[in-house]
Design a protein around this nucleic acid. Sequence first.
DNA 1: ATCACCATGTAAGCTGTTACATGATTAA
DNA 2: TTAATCATGTAACAGCTTACATGGTGAT
Lengths: 188, 188
Amino acid sequence: VVSTLGYALIGLLLREPATGYDLSRQLRRPVGYFWSAGHTQIYPQLVRLEAGGLVRHTVVAGAGPRETKRYRATAAGRHELRSWLLATTAEVDDREILLRAYLLFVLPPHEAAVVVQALRAHHEQALAHYRAIALPPDVGGWGPDVTERMTWAWGVTFEEGRIAWCNTLLARIASPAAGDRHGRPPTP
Amino acid sequence: VVSTLGYALIGLLLREPATGYDLSRQLRRPVGYFWSAGHTQIYPQLVRLEAGGLVRHTVVAGAGPRETKRYRATAAGRHELRSWLLATTAEVDDREILLRAYLLFVLPPHEAAVVVQALRAHHEQALAHYRAIALPPDVGGWGPDVTERMTWAWGVTFEEGRIAWCNTLLARIASPAAGDRHGRPPTP
DNA sequence: ATCACCATGTAAGCTGTTACATGATTAA
DNA sequence: TTAATCATGTAACAGCTTACATGGTGAT
């Protein structure tokens, strides 16, 4: 049984081998924007992953009172991460959704597309659910009804944004040489 | 020292007195959309809040093997919640932001506006931060760079959405009789 | 000299989830 | 009669944060 943090670590190690310290920095920035962890959580987790054969370490020269350990993910680790990404999860945390998106690169495009389509379906369902909730009409004034209505409005805005984002991602997966609509223009 | 769940409970009890069971239902729907908790967390928390004089209970007739307790927030609880909402918090969880918005009704409009302005400033700063991050150009293909770029794009979309939402909320606070732009039209 | 960065670890505490436990009333 | 809702609680565990602990190298 691997925790979400464990999958995050395997994914980062699949990008490139790293020390626990390196991972702790990445889990502050840029990964930390959606999934963060301190070194006190990472070091024991790496030990557990290694016990399960999902990562391996070699001791390298470094500056510290203890050994410097460079970790890399194993084939078993890659397989485990792939299974997790492909598993249909009914209810997932918002932060975990972003982490899964970040790690989608371990799947080939056609499998990644299936995962994103399932994600989009989930958000479309959530959006329909929010729209179906009958809120009392806004009668003006200031009170609980107003703040409740505004949090509801955020839910709608959020799900709409996620659906649009899924569509952009699907388009990017379908046409791998296409430009980037969300970032800077493609290099000519 | 009150936990975030504690403030959520005080806020709900300020809307109307409720049993722990009532609160657990509300913390699944509709509050649970952004802040959830099970009854096993709520009951001990109510005991702690009562020990701090922030809520009080009276025993009422009800169906169960134990006493049915109806809780309500005290003046001290209201004051504590007000202080929390007004406190300038550097880094707050996204879910906590929604909870704070939901509870803003305990502040008078002019104070609520100040809180939302601070929130908007926070999101504008985050958006500027994301935009300042130089991502490598999209060279096509499928790999870690693509998924990293897409999670970055989500960050931008998210912050833009939040800023727009803050503006809508501020407009609603400023003109209490205005219609609701995000929901259904105002009753004529 | 002092600070920041590299690099690892333990221990205590809080939060949150899951499982266990009890028992009445009402609807299918 | 079987399930759902009302209504409360304890205990075990997993996840995460904060504090403590160590010590070398390089920059200001």
